[in-house]
């Protein structure tokens, strides 16, 4: 499994990282704090960080991330401003970064313009766009690829096997398996179905297969890491974002659970 993590194009350091992808909302509670969190994540050498750009209508998110997005929208968190802000942070204080937001923000900036500026910044490994379906993404995939920006593919429990094969083939960076039916922040209960689907996905791709949505405790994270390559932790961390001490504590718990999970 370490080999798979190492072979993933998002992993750029020479040692085995904790297979953890924390999710942060940029600008919650403010950008200085977000920068501190990114630095901590870089220091722990996590697999990657999903940096959420707040959007006014986050249809795939539950109440915790909705509220954080509303708070963050009060700051300078437009997609373009965030790219500029990241360029001002020294690379050693940044983990491998995936920008996560809804398609309208990329569409509004212009996908090609975004890619050009993201590439120029040298800070962006890829993007995670929950409402860009595989079909609608077809015309944009070549643009992301031309600029070396990984567009992560989503698979959910309702995705048919034939469809999942197509999605993982076109995915770049890692594969995002949505572990539960619902929005972010619901509670995930592990089923045989989850294990079976992740096992199948891992056979169809050499990319890391990461499980997100509903990873509410270190215990669930380590359980998932028995069969998946990584875990994405969103709402549970976002919940503590306004309190740096609590966030740090929760984050470290997840780092240590993730380490254990990989045994």
């Amino acid at each position: 499994m370490t080999g798979r993590m190492g072979s993933g194009s998002i992993w750029r350091r020479g040692f085995s990282p904790p297979p953890l992808i924390p999710y942060l909302v940029a600008g919650d509670p403010d950008l200085e704090t977000t920068a501190d969190y990114l630095k901590m994540a870089a220091k722990k050498g996590v697999f990657a960080v999903e940096l959420g750009i707040p959007f006014s209508d986050p249809t795939a998110d539950g109440p915790v991330i909705q509220a954080a997005s509303q708070r963050a929208l009060r700051h300078e968190t437009a997609l373009e401003s965030i790219l500029g802000w990241l360029s001002g942070i020294s690379p050693e204080n940044l983990p491998s970064l995936y920008l996560m937001t809804y398609f309208n923000l990329f569409h509004h900036m212009g996908v090609e313009r975004f890619c050009r500026e993201a590439q120029r910044s040298g800070r962006i490994a890829g993007v995670v766009i929950p409402d860009l379906s595989f079909e609608d993404g077809a015309i944009y995939r070549p643009v992301f690829r031309a600029y070396g920006i990984n567009l992560v593919g989503f698979v959910s429990p309702t995705t048919s096997p034939a469809r999942a094969r197509k999605i993982v083939r076109e995915s770049r960076g890692f594969v995002y398996y949505v572990g539960l039916m619902g929005t972010t922040g619901s509670a995930l209960t592990l089923t045989d179905e989850t294990r079976r689907i992740v096992r199948d996905l891992r056979q169809w791709t050499s990319l890391p297969v990461c499980v997100g949505f509903g990873i509410s405790s270190g215990a669930i994270a380590s359980e998932i890491l028995e069969f998946a390559d990584g875990v994405i932790v969103g709402s549970r961390l976002v919940q503590d974002e306004r309190d740096p001490d609590r966030w740090k504590k929760t984050f470290e718990e997840f780092v240590s659970s993730a380490g254990k999970g990989k045994g």
């Binding site: 929950p130 079909e135 469809r163």
Partner: peptide
């Protein structure tokens, strides 16, 4: 188009 999450696509 169909700009929705993968969970809704099926």
């Amino acid at each position: 188009g169909r700009f929705v999450s993968e969970t809704l696509m099926s």
